[in-house]
Simulated scan of single mutants.
Amino acid sequence: MIEFFFDCSSPWTWLGFESIQPLAAELGVPIAWRPILIGGVFNAVNGSVYEQRVNPVAAKARYMKKDLADWARLQGLSIRFPPSVFPVNSVKAMRACCWLGNDCVAFARAAFHAYWSDDRDISQDAELAACATAAGIDPAALFGAIARDDIKACLRANTDELIARGGFGSPTIFVGGGDDIYFGNDRMPVIRAAVERALADRS
C-alpha cells in the first residue's frame, strides 16, 4: 500500500522514515521499503541540487537549517547539519538495506542515527559494521551481501524505477502501487488522506 523510496544520506528522509511508520501502523497498511541512491537520481533528473550547493541562496540556506531544526525538535530527533562529511557516499549502506529488504528498519535507523546524530561517516566499513551490530546483524554477513551483483543490481533497479515513476528526491512515497506520488517528510497529512481513500475504495 505504501512504498517508501529512501536514502539514508538525507536528513529530511530520516524525518519521513520515522513519521511514516506510526501512520502506517495506525491505518493498518504495510510499508515496502525501497532503498535508492539519491546521487543517481540527482545526476539523472535533478542536477539543480548540485548547483544550489555551489551557489546557495544565503537566506534560503539559513531558513533550511532553521526548518530542519524545527522538524527535528518536533519529532524528537537530534540532527546535526551539516555533518563533517557531507554529502556522504551511502552506497554501501543502501545496498545493505536492499539485502535486508523489509527487515531493513533497524539497520536504516542505526545508519540515520550514526550519520545525522553522531556525525559518523557511514561510508566507512567500521561505521557500517557498528550499525550492523547495533541492529543485531552479523557484520560479516552484511559485507558479504553488499558485494553481491544481485544486491548491487537491486539498488540500481530501485533508483531507476523511482526516476521512471517521476521521482526526483528522497523521501518519495507512493500510495496504492501506482503513480500516486508524494515527496518530502511534511506530506504525511496528505499521505494519510490518500491511504484512507484507497482503503475506502477497497471496502
Rank of each mutant, 00 (worst) to 15 (best):
M1N: 04
I2R: 02
I2M: 09
D7T: 09
P11H: 05
W14S: 01
S19W: 00
S19H: 03
I20W: 04
L23W: 05
A25E: 15
L27P: 03
V29N: 01
V29Y: 04
V29W: 07
I31E: 01
G40Y: 08
F42H: 12
N43A: 14
N43P: 00
A44K: 15
V45Y: 06
N46H: 14
S48T: 14
V49W: 12
V49F: 15
E51H: 09
Q52P: 00
A61V: 05
Y63H: 14
Y63M: 10
Y63P: 03
D67W: 05
L68Y: 03
D70I: 09
D70L: 12
W71G: 01
R73Q: 15
L74V: 12
L74P: 00
Q75N: 13
G76N: 11
S78G: 10
R80Q: 13
R80H: 12
P83Y: 06
V85A: 10
F86L: 13
N89F: 11
V91T: 15
K92R: 13
M94A: 05
R95C: 08
A96F: 10
C97N: 13
C97Y: 05
N102S: 11
N102W: 08
C104M: 15
V105C: 02
V105A: 13
R109H: 14
A110K: 03
A110W: 03
A110D: 08
A111R: 02
H113I: 11
A114S: 14
D119P: 06
D119T: 09
R120K: 15
D121S: 05
I122G: 01
S123C: 07
D125C: 02
E127W: 08
E127F: 10
L128N: 07
A130I: 04
A132M: 00
A134K: 12
A134H: 11
D138Q: 06
P139W: 12
A140G: 13
A140R: 13
A141N: 04
L142C: 01
F143G: 06
F143D: 00
A145P: 04
D149T: 12
D150F: 04
C154M: 11
N158Q: 11
N158D: 06
T159W: 01
E161M: 09
E161P: 01
E161L: 12
A164L: 02
R165N: 06
G166T: 05
G167H: 04
F168W: 14
S170M: 06
P171C: 08
I173D: 05
G176A: 09
G176F: 08
G176T: 09
G177K: 08
D179C: 07
D180T: 07
I181Q: 11
F183I: 09
G184E: 02
R192H: 07
A193K: 14
A193H: 10
A194F: 11
E196C: 03
E196A: 10
R197Q: 14
A198S: 10
L199R: 14
L199W: 06
A200Q: 12
